[in-house]
Design a protein around this nucleic acid. Structure first.
Lengths: 218, 218
DNA sequence: TTCGAATTTTTTGTATACAAGATTGTTGAC
DNA sequence: GTCAACAATCTTGTATACAAAAAATTCGAA
């Protein structure tokens, strides 16, 4: 990990936090990280400021930067907001979506199905992402699209975990079909509800996962 | 404007951008600003990183920092998202709100009314903010609360402008009453719709304002 | 004059230096 | 042995220095 530019450092640190290399509460040592990245403290500190605003890191004055991993409650809250944002995207998209975008959604779904058959979790995830981002875009509201994509990215590592739940991929597929139907027939409320439930169930699955981990720990 | 700490610099710059001291596209001169703030370039550049992430400033590599004022379209989009976020807060709050918080809302409304009678725009705005933030809080979702507050703050300068529309304060008051009623009787969808329309109308008023400014310019 | 290449001047990005606050370790009193 | 006060060490926050890129300017040719 040598000689990276300041622009990339924030991203690299973000990766590390997402991947779980850093635990919640860990202090990010400026000099140690500067050595690892092969840069001085200056660009590192600039990266910290960015991470602080997106909530991945807490900057305590005169104390340093500490990583902030969201706890179970915060994660549930984030999934709830994600569900609502997707619902809004769906409601708006139902009125504004193009035929071309509908074809994109069907294509993504077909490739998702293939991935399910091949037990290809990574492939499924890639196409699933394309599916959702297409809907964000078709809301016709660029600001909404960006906010949705931002939260989607933030939740990525946690959604990925719960995709491994037994039968979840197949169920998710069926929900995708229903979503496309609602969008294709231009039904705003139906689209919104289908998307809200689709995402909310991820939050619930995650809740179950948490509960099972907790009971194992006891 | 001398001897400020790095923590405050971002906030100070934000104020300047919000207040319109900086035009869209203006370059933020590091040395000039450093002089004005009485600090070196280092803390200033750290502030830029923060502003960049919240979208107030665009950081072009090797070129500098440029202020990004949202245009009419982006503003409409932001108002649309704000309306939806408030609607969600209302829907959740209708199920979770406490008696104490309902009293807070009624109190804020009463003070709002006084401000309307006294033609006190600033006073109205202060209580109006308390009203809305109480609802965010009562959604019971801290993450949602923070996101709503963030966007609320961002839209503050633009909402303020359109509050001066003839009769808008009185109309807004009536809407507030309806919102409290819906929340007090625990009706989620009614609360959501009342809040969505309340905020959406602000977006429309803003649209009118833009249109009138444009026609004057031509 | 006008255009363009070369040179000078700015300006950014990063490293280093240094002062002030925070942390840790040590010593001594009880 | 415990605790507190002091000292030494480490860390952060900021200023300054310097290299490299971008912008401005100069100068010469058509």
């Amino acid at each position: 990990m040598e000689q990276r530019r300041a622009d990339n450092i924030a991203e690299a640190l973000e990766e590390h936090i997402f991947s779980g290399s850093f635990q919640d509460g860990d202090r990010l040592d400026e000099v140690r990280l500067a050595e690892q990245f092969g840069v001085s403290r200056t660009p590192l500190r600039e990266a910290f400021q960015r991470l602080a605003l997106s909530g991945l890191v807490e900057l305590v004055p005169r104390r340093g930067a500490f990583v902030r991993q969201p706890g179970p409650i915060e994660l549930m809250e984030m999934f709830e907001v994600m569900a609502e944002l997707e619902a809004v995207c769906g409601r708006l998209a139902a009125m504004r979506i193009s035929e071309e975008a509908l074809d994109d959604l069907r294509d993504a779904n077909a490739k998702c199905q293939k991935a399910v058959d091949a037990r290809d979790t990574d492939g499924y995830y890639t196409e699933n992402e394309r599916f959702h981002k297409t809907i964000y875009r078709q809301s016709g509201n660029r600001f909404l699209e960006q906010e949705a994509a931002k939260l989607h990215k933030r939740l990525k590592p946690f959604r990925r975990q719960q995709l491994k739940f037994r039968g979840r991929m197949a169920q998710s597929m069926a929900e995708h079909e229903a979503i496309v139907d609602a969008l294709a027939t231009g039904k705003p409320e139906e689209s919104a509800n289908a998307l809200r439930n689709h995402v909310a169930v991820q939050g619930e699955k995650f809740h179950n996962l948490m509960a099972s981990l907790k009971s194992k720990a006891e």
